[in-house]
Nucleic acid binder design. Structure first.
Lengths: 231, 231
DNA sequence: CGCGGCTTTGATGTTCATCAAGTAAAGTGG
DNA sequence: CCACTTTACTTGATGAACATCAAAGCCGCG
């Protein structure tokens, strides 16, 4: 972890309008003053479950996983978050602790804002409060939707969903380097490493994708969508 | 559905302090004026997925299920909500539509508050905004936790969890009438009706519970808890 | 009384986890 | 830089968990 000193102003941040668009200049300066940029290298743990929440976090660059460890020591990945995501917004104002851990999958640049300043602004600026509540609703909706989707899918559908997630939401390309191991892939879809590998091999043999190590090339995008939706 | 005219004042409502404790008298009257009590009979659909959200709902009495229907027509129950729960708080301020349907499992009395009034109060009263955001965080935390739990459990653990949920959270008794059918039980734990019945029969034969139709009597509470935690 | 939905049990097959074993790749210390 | 250790990846065999199909009893309701 490295705290950056040559931090970029929020004014040039493409993600600024996502959440802070309704702040006036003075309020906005408060955020900027209470803010620090932090650079994490790959594989670093940003936050631990049960750690006290004292900042608001969002990603400028990189990729992280949100996960929980069960009593047998096995990890379960809740979601993978990308630039623009507010990785702790949903649980931030509970006055409690994180209910998941966060680790980086790539070198990651994050903004960290003092939670007290955010709380002050929610109290002071009604429009900002509304925008926070809106944003929380959207994040919750995504969680509900992904849970609903997974409960209908078998392993092929779940693998297809994750591959399409990386292609459409993260890399915006049909060829990309998978940022997670096969084991993490399994932890993300609640399947074993072995069956995850087997299914990826099946997709490869069937000509739906081409795999070479961590490189994935989606050959039949439409068919992958059919698998995602139907199974 | 029946709109009650002899509505009870919020002042005597035991659930009032849960969310409206920080409102002053004038604000509180605004809520009260924008509020109506609605009585639904058993099996009634309160809200449909894709319906526009225009009110805030919470339960005074009764029991409801939140669920989604998939493209094959099969229902998936997201959660069962009891008095005191804010059944649409998490998705309410998205300016969008419900992302699940809500139906009653028993005769249910609900309070419905105009969403515009709530939005106005969030903007005007900072402490109220904070309490809303806190409450949303807690609800989200419960969803994340239940998802994490389910991903580790097989059918026996999931059945045990639901039985303990009804005993501990809903009825506060070890003997109760199951408010859902066996099919709905399956929809709640993402298992088939047949295997749900089989497992309940196993628990019955093993002397962990005693079942007679919809009546459930938990005989070995501690063992049920072990099943919930270990599998 | 007959129909439809709920419940239950059994038989069968599919999906997935587990165990085992081996190869490849990546990190580690001398 | 190389030997060594660890971690990641892969395939196969086996059994457990679960879905599906079928059939029958039960119960409430028009």
């Amino acid at each position: 972890m490295k705290i950056k000193n040559d931090i970029i102003s929020c004014k040039t941040c493409v993600y600024r309008t996502l959440l802070f668009g309704c702040l006036d200049d003075i309020e906005y300066k408060m955020i900027n003053n209470a803010r620090r940029e932090v650079l994490f290298h790959k594989g670093e743990k940003i936050k631990s479950e049960f750690e006290k929440i004292n900042s608001f976090l969002y990603l400028r660059r990189g990729l992280v996983k949100l996960y929980k460890t069960d009593h047998t020591g096995k990890d379960h990945i809740l979601s993978i978050n990308k630039p623009g995501d507010f990785i702790n917004l949903l649980c931030i104002f509970t006055n409690e602790t994180y209910n998941y851990s966060i680790s980086t999958l790539e070198e990651t640049l994050a903004c960290e804002v003092d939670i007290n300043v955010l709380e002050h602004l929610i109290k002071a600026n009604g429009d900002f409060a509304i925008s926070i509540v809106h944003r929380m609703g959207h994040i919750a909706g995504e969680i509900i939707e992904s849970r609903f989707e997974q409960s209908q899918q078998q392993i092929k559908g779940r693998i297809a969903s994750i591959l399409l997630f990386f292609a459409d939401q993260v890399y915006h390309r049909k060829t990309f380097e998978l940022p997670i191991t096969r084991r993490e892939f399994g932890e993300l879809i609640s399947m074993t490493t072995e069956n995850t590998i087997r299914t990826l091999s099946d997709f490869n043999n069937d000509g739906i994708i081409a795999t070479k190590g961590k490189t994935i090339n989606i050959l039949d995008y439409d068919f992958l969508w059919k698998i995602k939706v139907n199974g």
